[in-house]
Amino acid sequence: MSEPAPLPFALQFVAGAAAGISEILVMYPLDVVKTRMQLQLSNVAAHERYNGVVDTFQKIIKKEGASRLYKGITSPILMEAPKRATKFACNDEFQKIYKRAFGVEKLTQPLSVLSGASAGLVESLVVVPFELVKIRLQDRNTSFKGPAHVVKHICKEEGMLAMYNGLESTMWRHGMWNAGYFGIIFQIRSLLPAAQNKSQKTRNDLIAGMLGGTFGSFLSTPFDVVKSRIQNTAVVAGQLRKYNWTLPSVLIIFREEGFKALYKGFIPKVLRLGPGGGILLVVFTEVSDLLRKVAV
């Protein structure tokens, strides 16, 4: 099958939004589990401790009800459209920019990694406030009733700028995840047999997206753990926060809790973003193809 014609930025944005919302509706409970595991400190009582994905699911459902697995989903849904749209649209735009800058006609894997990382940095600017609200709502000890309650409290008690608490760690997370995701997609697509029909194309996209999501999760999880800790720590005037900047926070967690703590929540993250990465790529490609036909 020949390479499809590039879509205008606005249509890429629409396709990315559709892909993001599809993924979050299917995979969100795993994100709640991931966040709970990342926020858990080593001094938690044994009967309260989350011991793996299944145990976390069971304890949340038993103690808080199944609906708790969708606590805070409003914020991610509001975020997913601009987040995923920015991811895919900016990735495509950066690919064009870097191909012109380096004087090449075809995309290479290094340029794919560079484009993905660049898109991730832009994406982080969009998602930080939404992620902050989501983290505060997903905490097991939260007293917030909904996204509006969180925003009102933060703006009143911590200041407007606190809505961008964790920006630097989010840039690390999204830069690394997107670099791994799009870099692996490029490599896997080049290794798989060329698609001769639509079903084979969907299969290739699903495989490439799942492997890309898995590798991106491996690269980004330490920064994700740090981001969750930073964003769940309130900004108090005159008080130095334990978790503030990314690399010092990585060292604190490593020193106090060990290397494994940097990969807390890795399994639910992979279970979500492995298949989720496949869903993202398949839906984005399908919607892009549909919009390409409509736009012609």
Rank of each mutant, 00 (worst) to 15 (best):
P4M: 09
P4I: 03
A5D: 15
Q12H: 13
A15H: 04
G20Q: 08
M27W: 03
L30I: 01
L30Y: 05
V32A: 09
T35C: 00
R36Q: 11
R36G: 08
L39W: 02
L41Y: 03
N43D: 15
N43P: 01
A46M: 07
A46W: 04
D55K: 07
T56N: 03
Q58D: 06
I60Q: 02
I61G: 02
I61Q: 01
K62L: 14
K62Q: 08
G65K: 03
Y70C: 04
G72S: 08
S75A: 14
D92L: 10
F94K: 04
Q95V: 15
K96D: 11
E105A: 07
L107G: 13
Q109N: 14
S112K: 11
L114N: 07
L114M: 14
S115Q: 13
A117V: 14
L121K: 10
V122R: 11
V122F: 15
E123I: 09
S124F: 01
V127P: 04
L132H: 05
V133P: 01
V133T: 10
I135D: 02
I135P: 00
L137W: 04
Q138S: 13
F144K: 01
P147Y: 04
A148P: 07
H149R: 05
H149L: 10
H153Q: 11
I154V: 15
C155L: 11
C155K: 11
L161N: 06
A162M: 02
E168I: 11
W172D: 09
R173L: 15
N178L: 10
N178H: 15
G180M: 10
G180H: 09
F182H: 13
G183E: 14
I188L: 07
R189Q: 14
S190R: 14
L191G: 09
A195M: 05
N197D: 15
Q200E: 12
T202K: 04
T202F: 06
N204T: 05
L206R: 01
I207T: 07
M210V: 11
L211Q: 06
F223I: 03
V226C: 02
K227G: 02
K227R: 13
S228Y: 03
S228T: 04
Q231Y: 05
A237V: 05
Y243E: 00
Y243W: 06
L247R: 05
P248S: 00
S249K: 03
V250L: 07
V250G: 00
L251E: 06
L251T: 01
I252K: 00
I252D: 00
G258N: 04
K260L: 10
Y263Q: 05
F266Q: 12
F266V: 12
I267N: 05
P268N: 12
P268M: 09
K269D: 11
R272A: 11
L273E: 12
G274D: 02
G277V: 06
G277D: 04
G278C: 10
L281Q: 13
V282T: 04
V283A: 09
V287F: 08
S288C: 12
S288F: 02
L291S: 12
K293L: 13
K293Y: 11
A295I: 02
A295V: 08
